[in-house]
Structures are given as C-alpha cells and as structure tokens.
Design a binder for these strands. Structure first.
Lengths: 112, 112
DNA sequence: AGAACATATTGACATTTATCAATATGTTCT
DNA sequence: AGAACATATTGATAAATGTCAATATGTTCT
C-alpha cells in the first residue's frame, strides 16, 4: 500500500513497526538518563570495574527500583541500543554502536 | 542529580522530558508513514498542489480516520517534526528541518 | 550444602495512548 | 445567508506502558 509512495529501500531496510519500537525505547526519560550515563562514563560507582556499567548503578542514576531498571534494560537491549554481558553475578551494559548507527541512518533518511 | 554524571551541556540543551516527548512522536508506525510520505513527496493526491501535503492525503496513506490523522499531526507538530500551514480550507504539512536537525544532534550525542 | 548477593520475572495497578463516532469550527462557494 | 467541505475537538473505550512488591533464578562465597 505504502510501497507505491516511498523510496523502495526505506521500509524494507527499516520495517516501520520495528523502527517505531526502537524509537519507543528512546521515548522515556529514565531510559534517556541511562543512555546518557552510558555515553559519558566507562566505570560505575557500585561494582568492580569491568566492561561497561553494571545494572545497580542505574538505580541511583534513575531513582527507580531494581525491577524497573531491569525492565528498562531489557527494553534498551531489545531495541539494540544497549548490549549486556554477564560477568559473575553482575550484568555489565554498554551502548550498541551498530544499533545507534542504524537508527541514526533511519532518522537522516526520514528527515529530508 | 544527574548533572554530576553527564557532559554539562547535554540535558541543558536537550531537556530529557522534552527529548523523550520528541522520540515518542517518532515511536508510532502511523506517524512514521506520514513522515516517510512527507520525505518522499512534494505533492499529494487529494488537494490542489500547494506548499506541502494536505491532511486528507494521510487518511489513505495510513488507513486511519480523519480525527485520528488530525491527532497524529498535532503530535508531530508539537514535537517540531512537522510544520503546518493553513491555506484556504486545507492544512498543508511539511517536514520541519530544524526539528529534525535537533533530534539528530541529540541522537548523535547520546550514541557515542 | 547453605548463605549472601545481583539480576530477572511475575502479578497487580494506575496512567497514558491510539482509535473512532459524534460534534464543533472554520472556509469557500452559490 | 446557507450549503458543502476540510479540519479540529470532545468523549468514550480498549490496549499498551511504567512502576513497585513479591518471588524466582543464578552466581560466588564459606
């Protein structure tokens, strides 16, 4: 239906439901705080220094409970904005550069 | 609270609630269809050619009712993704380049 | 094995959101 | 003025979302 109107490549490369889901992951102040923290810091406050920031740090960053933080991290991972890796009993998170590159590319195509 | 963790400029330049609101405007498949259409077409199907695309075109593009389309356009305008101009009895819409530039800049800062 | 700890999942609840039908507003004709 | 049309607003409803308390899972100690 829409295919007749658009550049043939866009919605093939960026299925709209999927893209909407990824923007939704960005559409929450708590998740933005988490991303902003990840963008600015390599080491956190609460856990031994590792590859990224560990989950418990985001409780103080956001002011939210542990289960809620866990829910937000799952959301960010499913949107490919963040990567998580378990190290011992901690989960360490860092930004997913490829996911960001992809959504940036989509935004550039959309906006012009 | 968060200021101690971030680049001083980011949340000043991009208040997080405001930024979340703008991403939320992007986080809906119907609104993405509308933006995609605006990005690809200078003239619509239903109204005399003018500066942009008129509202009624988006009903067929999205498959949604007229009030729902109107609601989505209001959302896109409040997020500074789209500009609207009334011409006679029609509303003509086009992308807002500055709004897109701003959100693109925020995304770049966030993702690295 | 058992204690202690970090994270994930489940369940419940309040809020927000997308949607449409009905109605209102505003514009351009005759 | 009144008819016809395009868009906006209101009100109602179903679905999705953010949040926390309680509980489960998984890991590392002793």
């Amino acid at each position: 239906m829409l295919e007749q109107f658009e550049r043939p490549s866009f919605s093939t490369k960026f299925p709209l439901d999927d893209l909407a889901w990824r923007f939704k992951a960005l559409a929450d102040p708590a998740r933005l705080k988490i991303l902003l923290y990840l963008a600015n810091y390599d080491a956190g406050q609460c856990c031994p220094t590792g590859e990224g920031i560990c989950a418990c740090d985001f409780e103080s960053v956001t002011g939210l409970s542990q289960p809620t933080v866990s829910h937000h991290m799952k959301c960010l991972i499913s949107a490919h904005l963040v990567m998580g890796e378990k190290q011992g009993k901690w989960m360490y998170y860092r930004l997913d550069p490829e996911g960001f590159a992809s959504i940036r590319e989509a935004l550039v195509s959309l906006g012009q």
